[in-house]
């Protein structure tokens, strides 16, 4: 090997090592951030994290044993409404894009969907305030759910479209060739073939909005007690964290840490479940 070649080869090896180190370092940093957040929340929240946190209502500051049962149930109710609204709307629009629409129209709708996805969550909150809270003259679980439901729509549309498009056309043809209508084909062959992808996509979507605070501030508002119904203000974990964190009381701060940990654990477990569902799909597809 000539001297020049050796120099080039050395330079290449050094460049390679440097690049590997830099990219590796930043990858490590990315992972570390998540574990730092988790660890920090656990460290600060663990003191207030007890059974009563999940079963009791909030107590005035200074009193021991307060919990956030109302916020946990409230978040659950809000997310239920969001799912009932966002998933069907997004799914059906996604079906239309994947199975029925022409290329140009699909392109336009996809673009608009991306724009909707980019609308700041606080603006979605204002929209839900104007559309639901104002006419009803009160803050409510329903308004919070609608705000989060709207936030779910764009991702639901895109997820549905992508997973349906991934279904091979040969399956559609097989069904049509047996005398099935297009609608029957979509709902009995195409969607079931994509079901695991769809379910996991919707779960990730739900996990994404579960931590949203801004859209709930002036829709579901907040509540220190049990919500008295779907059309009444409701507590939710993110808003509770916000209110407790900006309060001047140390024991409220502790509770906010605990709530933060519970919320993060909830989101992470939805995420992990969704990933498991996806990998399960991969296994059946390979068989």
């Amino acid at each position: 090997m000539s001297r020049m070649n050796m120099e080039i080869s050395l330079r290449r090896r050094v460049t390679n090592i440097v690049m590997l180190s830099i990219t590796g370092l930043f990858t490590l940093l990315t992972i570390t951030i998540l574990f730092c957040i988790l660890g920090y929340l656990l460290y600060h929240g663990i003191g207030s994290l007890s059974w009563s946190f999940f079963t009791n209502l909030p107590k005035p500051t200074g009193e021991a044993g307060g919990g956030m049962a109302n916020a946990i149930v409230g978040s659950g109710k809000i997310l239920l409404i969001a799912t009932v609204l966002g998933v069907p709307v997004g799914f059906l629009a996604g079906v239309y894009l994947s199975e029925y629409s022409g290329r140009t129209f699909a392109f336009v709708v996809r673009y608009v969907t991306d724009l909707l996805n980019g609308v700041p969550s606080i603006v979605i909150g204002i929209f839900a305030y104007a559309m639901v809270v104002k006419p009803m003259h009160r803050f409510s679980t329903l308004a919070g759910g609608i705000a989060l439901g709207i936030m779910m729509i764009p991702i639901a549309v895109r997820t549905t479209e992508e997973f349906l498009r991934a279904v091979p056309n040969s399956l559609r043809e097989a069904s049509l060739a047996l005398g099935a209508t297009k609608a029957t084909t979509i709902f009995t062959v195409v969607a079931p073939a994509a079901i695991q992808g769809l379910v996991s996509g919707m779960m990730l979507n739900l996990a994404r909005v579960a931590g949203e605070t801004a859209p709930l501030l002036f829709t579901a508002l907040g509540n220190m007690f049990w919500s008295r119904g779907w059309s009444q203000p409701s507590a939710s974990l993110p808003v509770m964290i916000y209110q407790y964190a900006i309060s001047p009381y140390e024991d409220y701060h502790q509770q906010a840490w605990a709530a933060g940990f519970v919320l993060l654990a909830l989101v992470l477990s939805i995420n992990v479940t969704a990933r498991l569902v996806i990998s399960g799909r991969g296994a059946t597809a390979r068989r």
Partner: peptide, 12 residues
């Protein structure tokens, strides 16, 4: 009825 070049059983 029709049978295709590549077998296309449903994932059922």
């Amino acid at each position: 009825g029709m049978v295709f070049q590549k077998s296309n059983p449903f994932p059922k």
